[in-house]
Simulated scan of single mutants.
Amino acid sequence: MRRSAARRVEVLAAAGEVVAARGADGTRFTDVTAATGVGVSTLQYYFGTREDMLIAVFRHAAQQEFDAVTARLERVTGPWERLLTVAEHLTGAVGDEASWRLWVESWRWALRDPGVRADVLGDYRRWHELLAAEIAAGGFGSGAAPIDTARQVLALIDGLALPVVLGDPAFSRAAARDLLSDGLSRLVRTS
């Protein structure tokens, strides 16, 4: 990777942290400049407009999350453990919730931007397909089509992740993890 391309990726990661902390509407080029030391003119060269930078941040973050889960799955062999690995990663029951904050910001933008909407729906399709493949490979006996079960699983994940991301004091990561495991086992009928 050329140096400028590598630097752009570094800037995207740092800009993602800024967006996660400030929100997309509250993020300006100057905020990213303060976090990265990269001048506004360089950010404009990399991305064009502030909106284009935010869209690039959303795309980068989504790809990073998918890559992270794929890497984690390479180290897991059991079917239940693989399914739980994907689900726990997506709920934020493990790790930090910065990626979830970016995901929520991308949802907000998707409501008013058809391009971002297509990206978000494409990301959902990828997660549905990954979950469906793990459900099918695991031979789980829910009786439903794996893609339908995957949609239910992702709905469970979204519902459990939101209180974690919001920092609900009555809902810990451990509680999310326990409810996730229980709900997931019911959806795929492992017990």
Rank of each mutant, 00 (worst) to 15 (best):
G139T: 02
L111S: 07
H89T: 15
L131H: 01
L111Q: 13
L121C: 03
L83M: 05
L90N: 10
I135S: 01
D113N: 12
G92T: 09
R125W: 02
G139A: 00
A136K: 00
T85P: 13
L83R: 07
L84S: 14
T85I: 11
R108F: 04
G139H: 00
A98I: 01
P114N: 02
H128L: 04
A132E: 02
R126E: 08
W107A: 13
R117K: 13
V120N: 08
A93G: 14
R117L: 13
W109H: 13
E88I: 08
L83V: 07
G115K: 08
R117P: 05
G138T: 01
H128F: 00
E81T: 09
V116N: 07
D96I: 01
W109Y: 12
L130A: 06
G92F: 10
D96S: 12
P114L: 04
L131A: 10
A87P: 07
A132T: 00
V94F: 04
A133I: 01
L83E: 04
D96F: 00
L130G: 04
R117M: 07
I135Q: 00
T85C: 14
W107N: 13
P114H: 05
H89C: 13
R101Y: 14
E97N: 15
V104Q: 15
T85N: 09
S106M: 15
S99M: 05
R112T: 14
A137Y: 00
G92K: 13
E81I: 04
A118P: 02
G92A: 10
A98M: 04
L83T: 09
A93N: 09
E88F: 07
R117S: 10
R126L: 12
I135K: 00
R82S: 07
H89L: 10
A132C: 02
W103C: 09
G95H: 06
A110C: 06
V86T: 11
G92V: 11
V94D: 12
G139V: 00
L84I: 07
L84Q: 15
E129A: 08
